[in-house]
Amino acid sequence: MHIAEGFLPPAHAVAWGVASAPFVVHGVRSLTREVREHPESTLLIGASGAFTFVLSALKLPSVTGSCSHPTGTGLGAILFRPPIMAVLGTITLLFQALLLAHGGLTTLGANVFSMAIVGPWAGYGVYRLLRRFDVPLMVAVFFAAFVADLSTYCVTSVQLALAFPDPSSGFLGALGKFGSIFAVTQIPLAVSEGLLTVLVMRLLVQSSKGELTRLGVFLAGKRSRSGTNGTDATNQTNETNEANETTGTVTR
């Protein structure tokens, strides 16, 4: 999904930068607030960023005969909400733009928009929606990561099609072209990302149940509306029940 350095016309590059900036600024604020109010979160935030680091370095072969990489943004979006993920994703993209010549500074805004903003929000939205209808936690986690991954690549396709409409078939023709390069390649990788995110979430449920409870990860049904840090006394029993169900198989 990395649009290479200089491959977006200046007007587009600036427009995507302007669109992304407020999300990242808001994200930095959310991040500093979270770290100040809950210093114990720092480690898990670091782990979420690390997950994105690993997954976006893994270029995997796909059924289309080309290679692409997952994004790893679904996990952090579920745990800490999308604004914080906007920051972590931007850091990853900056690392790749500066050291690996992968992506670029002029296309940073566009790449941040697809991977660090739309991906996390789409994944988080799916997660919340599924949990509203009491879909089991791990199923919701799978689809959240799947959608976060795939939507990122769809946005990249749209961005390129807007910048380079096909001379004969226009925007839609170009969208089909870029979509077949990015989105189709990405489908099996999005499945992989979903499975890996489920794996990490399973390990987290085993190792950090208290932390996940505080973050509201186990909230389901109507209670899931109350946001992330909802740990009202009434919620608590239900949360712990589900937490226990999810870890029912953990050897004690």
Binding site: I3, G6, F7, K59, G65, S66, C67, T106, T156
Partner: peptide, 23 residues
């Protein structure tokens, strides 16, 4: 099994052969 990113660059030059990366 080339990178999808590189394939997208090729597709861009197919659509707009005159496009020169400006940075």
């Amino acid at each position: 099994f080339a990178g999808a990113d590189a394939e997208a660059e090729t597709a861009i030059t197919e659509i707009e052969p005159d496009y020169e990366p400006w940075f």
